[in-house]
Computed example of a mutant assay.
Amino acid sequence: MTADRINLHILNLTVTLRCNLRCRLCVADVSKYKPQPHFELDYLRDCIDKCFSIVDYADRFQLSGGEPFLHHDLDKVITKAMTKSDQFGFLGLFTNGTIMPPQELIDQILEYNSAEKFMFYISDYGVHSPKAQELKSILDEAGLPYDIKDYSGEAQHFGGWVDYGDYQFQNRTTLETAKVFNDCAVNQVGGIWACRFGQIHRCTRSASGISLGLTPNDTSDYIDLFDNSLTVGQQREKMMALYAKPYISCCGYCSGDFGSETADRYPAGEQIG
């Protein structure tokens, strides 16, 4: 990010928080939402337009959930996203390996992938992801790229998941909170900006914490895409100011383990109840 360009590493758009798994330690906190929000097509189209009126470029634009394949208009969301393809390196689609996409969706993506603009991200939780290997075979046959993370056995990808904590205030000093922010793996990989509920946040935890009422609603911690009192130029200025903050409020409610080499790791995809 520079004085006149907003270039992001990853920009993530949540298309639904509905999910057919109930994973403990889910970073999207889907099990905490009752009911789980599902975002309609027109709203998602507006979010995409507004995001890329503010953001100049993202190396990766992601569609995630929940489980995106549960969205009945996912093909139309992808069509809308691809109208902005000159503003991102490629489009990523996440899935937990529980549902097979319709052949029509595969055919649609094949058309877009001629310019190497698409990537599937598959999380394989073993018995909880009964379609993961079938999807892998379909993508191999179609020649579509994918990244599959194996969480099915003892040797899990990256040792498993970390526990971010349950949004309890950590009572750290300002310097300690800034260190948590600087050491966070989200920053180490160049930043993963999250768009949810019409807001762009520095991370998914910030979006979850504020929307669930578990962390302070500090309006300087996010960009409200639907705040019509601000011009696009003012929204861009606010986003640059957010980028420059030494930490955000949710850092004070995070375990700080994400990015720590000594943090305990837990089996990924472990189901609740």
Rank of each mutant, 00 (worst) to 15 (best):
S220G: 10
E237R: 12
S260G: 04
Q235N: 06
I248H: 10
C251L: 06
N217F: 00
Y247V: 09
S229C: 10
K245Q: 15
T231V: 08
Q235L: 08
T215V: 15
Y222W: 05
C250D: 01
S260I: 00
G256T: 09
V232H: 08
Y247G: 11
T262K: 14
L212M: 07
L214E: 13
I200C: 11
I200Y: 06
R236M: 00
R202P: 02
P246Q: 02
G252M: 10
I210M: 14
Y243V: 08
C251P: 04
S255Q: 09
G213Q: 11
I210R: 11
I200L: 15
F258I: 10
G256W: 07
I248P: 01
T231Q: 01
A241W: 00
F258Q: 13
L214W: 06
Q235A: 04
S206Y: 06
I200W: 05
I248S: 02
S249R: 10
Y243K: 09
P246F: 00
A207N: 13
H201A: 13
G252Y: 03
S249V: 15
L242F: 09
T231D: 05
R205D: 13
Y222I: 05
R236E: 02
N217P: 11
S211E: 14
Y222M: 08
R205S: 12
D227T: 03
G252N: 15
I248Y: 07
D221G: 13
A241E: 12
H201Y: 12
Y247I: 01
C250W: 06
D221K: 02
G209V: 07
Q234M: 11
R205V: 01
F258W: 12
P246V: 03
G256I: 07
I223F: 03
